[in-house]
Simulated scan of single mutants.
Amino acid sequence: MLTSKAELASEAPAIRKVPGEEGLWIFIFGDMIAFTVIFATYLYYRGEQPELFELGRRTLDEGHGVINTVVLLLSSLFVAVGLRAMRQQEKAAASWLFVGALVCAFAFIGMKFVDYGSIIAGDYFSTTGDFYVYYFALTGLHLFHLVIGVGVLFYLLSQALRIGRGPVGKISVIEGGAAYWHMVDLLWIVIFPLLYLVK
């Protein structure tokens, strides 16, 4: 018996694609390249002034760095599980998970401003060479990306709240927002050991 085209199409395996919009992945890739250049520059100048950079590293609060890392990893977990809840049309779960991610984001921002305040009050700039130039460049640029990410999280929350009440945005856009947030977390996972742990 002949098989119809419709039956063949239904039996064909689903084509897997990268989640999110292709343009966003180009942006993420470009952003990662830019950060990689900054990381390499930091390591080069750290090699030029090892004693001063080590002195600068010792002035940082490693405990705060660890807390920030845990907070961002937790936020990524919330976003990943929230995205799955969105796909399954689970409004309450998705909404609360994105709220949890937002709480983590604001906790990170608050902790970072505490760090900035203690560094400025400590006046370490004259004794640590270029260390704090790179510290503020790396953490400031990351913080800028994180603030944009907060806007993304609010968008994800707004879409979760629309489940069952109206049209929800394209899933590829929602996936792209989640991918952007994961990039922000990944950047911190590199920045944290680079600034706080490398001796």
Rank of each mutant, 00 (worst) to 15 (best):
V71G: 07
A179C: 08
S158I: 00
W188K: 03
H182Y: 08
E62V: 14
I171W: 06
Q49W: 13
Y44F: 14
H64P: 04
T3R: 09
H64G: 15
N68Q: 13
G164V: 08
G129M: 03
T127M: 08
F136E: 09
S4Q: 02
T69L: 13
R58A: 02
L156Q: 01
V37L: 15
A94G: 01
L138M: 00
V150P: 01
K112A: 07
A85Q: 05
S4C: 10
Q159W: 03
I191Q: 03
D61G: 06
L187N: 08
V79P: 08
F35V: 07
S172Q: 05
R16F: 14
R57E: 01
E21N: 07
F27G: 10
K199S: 12
V103L: 13
V150Y: 03
I15L: 10
Y134F: 12
V173A: 08
L186A: 13
P13N: 12
E54A: 06
D130S: 13
V150R: 00
M183Q: 13
T59H: 10
F113W: 05
H182T: 01
I119E: 04
M86G: 01
H145M: 05
I174A: 06
M32I: 12
L138G: 03
G129R: 00
Y45A: 07
K91G: 09
M86D: 05
G100M: 05
M32W: 11
D31M: 13
G177K: 00
W25V: 00
V37R: 05
D123M: 04
K112N: 05
V70M: 11
P19Y: 05
M1K: 03
M111V: 03
A160I: 03
R16G: 14
G169P: 07
G169S: 12
V114D: 05
G110F: 00
I119C: 10
G110N: 03
T127F: 04
W188F: 06
M1G: 05
I26H: 12
K199M: 07
I120E: 12
G151K: 00
P167H: 13
V152C: 01
H182K: 09
G100S: 12
F29S: 14
L157R: 04
T41P: 01
R58N: 04
G56K: 00
R87Q: 15
V152I: 13
G100W: 06
S95Q: 04
Y180E: 06
Y180Q: 04
S75L: 05
T3K: 09
G23W: 10
K17S: 10
M32G: 15
L143K: 00
G20I: 00
G30T: 10
A6D: 15
G166S: 11
L156E: 02
H182P: 11
R57G: 06
